[in-house]
Nucleic acid binder design. Structure first.
Lengths: 338, 338
DNA sequence: TTTTAGCACTCTTTTTACTTGATTGCTAAT
DNA sequence: ATTAGCAATCAAGTAAAAAGAGTGCTAAAA
């Protein structure tokens, strides 16, 4: 265990480094609250913290930088999650009060708000398809060979897609299809829309394959589609660590690989807010970054997951404070919706 | 006017510079076809071309680089638009033959194909809303206070949106609304969905404002929404000019400002393919880049506009060749759709 | 025993000077 | 009109030197 002064030194170094991105010297943090002693004393503490693995030295004559272990300790033990100003509270409230028509919009609004306040990049993704159940399916005839399929899920999400046929269809057929699909699928998980269902409908129920096949194919596609939303990709370029072109390129590549991100955000979590610091990320490409994931919900209705990507020296306190506030806000505002 | 050898020298320099991104020396282009003379002779021609404003020198002991005027002359007079290989033709054909469900998809497929072949970034945008007419409007009840509105336009586009109400609505009301909106709007430009219409429906036709207002608001929003699609944002980072962080940051900022791009692509064009070289771009932010816009269509059905963003030394010949081929292909393949 | 002042030592960063190499522009010969 | 030859120019690369920041250790003070 760390004694109180060591904790204070570690905290000061992490916070200073988050602010400046420069290795922190003993001079820089002396005389901070709780550290009213000489730089020599602090140097001694720093040397010990380094020996214990919480700090690192880029080279002999530089200051100290937190190690992954150091950040981890900071996040787990030292972090204060009320680092949010009145202005920020006002800003978030305003944003969340915008009139919302689709639940997906909440995720996007939350996502962009977080990006704006923290100045990091955010990625958001809807609730994963395996947990969603079908509440209602509708088909609408649009023109002689085209109809629209709409799925309403129990999480309040609406997924729609256009389906084209190679032959003309009638309003009557559409009605029958609506009725039949509803009957068959209401209450089932959306992943039920799949090949076996197609087979069943064609072979057992004797529906025309020309009709069923395009429907299943297209609906399956839309159901599986992860709609990934990115916010503030340019923000990270303001950070000094992005002065290395190496890192910058790396980052742009990460953003381009959407599956990677979707993967990240869908990994099973113990808690609603999870922090992955540098090397803790499973993916090699992410080891220079930290990621905080935030599964947000109203009541027990899963709305999706938001991921914040920033440098390892991300302002964890700010990020987590904002998330907690949004979470609270969502659940107060919308209590009546439950 | 430039004499033949000057044209040849200018062309050689532009093409060499496009290939290498290094200032071109007199040595590098001598002995190319049509330039069988000494480097001294070429130096004389280069000096003259510089005096006329077609070339520039980064510094005394460097080779020459084309000026904006040089590129412009090259694009207008020297460019050959059949610079497309058999492999590329095959690749494009394959891509365009994918089964397509929505017209919007064509634009995206064309856009990504162009990006893949040229290695530049592309931005695409659907047809501008002022030219589209309403072919059909449908409303579908989703749940007691929620319905979906679907607009089918004459360009084959489908725009849909979710509309929420503060009070319960019945299947009957939805039917009436469907009928009425269709009656009123069929054949009208989609921009007709606007405040005045709301006013008319509420005040003259005596519809409930609680019903009409959310509909108009939401439909107006979805109609005005420009869906911008980006492809290959990371490709530009392979180019040597992106080794300057300055330029890289600038580029990421451009990508983030979607309105800027939409603006660019919607600016009135004389021709279907337009080239804007560096400073010719109206927006300050774009002066280090060149942009080629491509308005593509099937018959006279406007499908949208694709913009290619690349460095000033973009391979104009390749880009324009690909566009012309796609344009031809679209109109042959889909002739029967007309 | 803990804290602190003092100072030599280390290593990066910045500065300066020097060398190399590519390319031009000019002159004079072809 | 073309070309060979060569001095002049300037970026880019290399090496050495100086400056600066921060530590770690020692010995004295609290």
């Amino acid at each position: 265990m760390l004694d109180d002064r060591k904790k204070r030194v570690l905290q000061a170094i992490v916070e200073e480094y988050i602010k400046t991105a420069e290795p922190v010297s003993s001079n820089a943090i002396m005389n901070l609250e709780g550290l009213e002693c000489s730089s020599a004393t602090i140097r001694n503490e720093m040397a010990e913290l380094e020996k214990m693995g919480y700090l690192e030295k880029p080279h002999t004559s530089a200051g100290r930088v937190p190690s992954a272990k150091g950040y981890r300790y900071y996040v787990d033990e030292l972090l204060q999650t009320d680092k949010i100003t009145l202005d920020e509270i006002k800003y978030i409230s305003d944003k969340l009060e915008t009139k919302i028509n689709e639940l997906e919009e909440i995720t996007q609004i939350a996502s962009s708000t977080i990006s704006e306040i923290t100045h990091y990049t955010t990625v958001s993704i809807g609730p994963s398809s395996d947990i969603q159940k079908i509440e209602n399916i509708k088909f609408v005839l649009l023109s002689s060979r085209m109809m629209m399929g709409v799925i309403l899920t129990d999480t309040g999400l609406v997924k729609e897609t256009i389906i084209k046929f190679d032959e003309d269809i009638t309003e009557n057929q559409v009605q029958t299809l609506s009725y039949m699909f509803n009957n068959k699928l209401k209450g089932e998980p959306i992943t039920k829309i799949d090949k076996p269902l197609e087979k069943y409908l064609v072979e057992e129920m004797r529906y025309s394959v020309n009709l069923i096949k395009p429907i299943i194919e297209q609906m399956k596609k839309v159901v599986e589609e992860e709609s990934i939303h990115l916010e503030g990709a340019n923000r990270l370029f303001e950070l000094p660590e992005f002065n290395s072109l190496e890192v910058a390129k790396n980052f742009v590549n990460i953003l381009d690989e959407k599956e990677l991100m979707a993967d990240m955000l869908n990994t099973g979590f113990a808690k609603d807010i999870n922090v992955y610091i540098g090397e803790e990320n499973e993916k090699e490409e992410l080891k220079d970054f930290s990621i905080v994931t935030f599964k947000h919900r109203i009541g027990n209705k899963d709305l999706g997951t938001i991921g914040i990507i920033g440098p390892k020296r991300m302002d964890y306190a700010k990020v987590i404070s904002v998330m907690k506030y949004i979470s609270k806000k969502l659940n107060n505002e919308n209590k009546d919706e439950e």
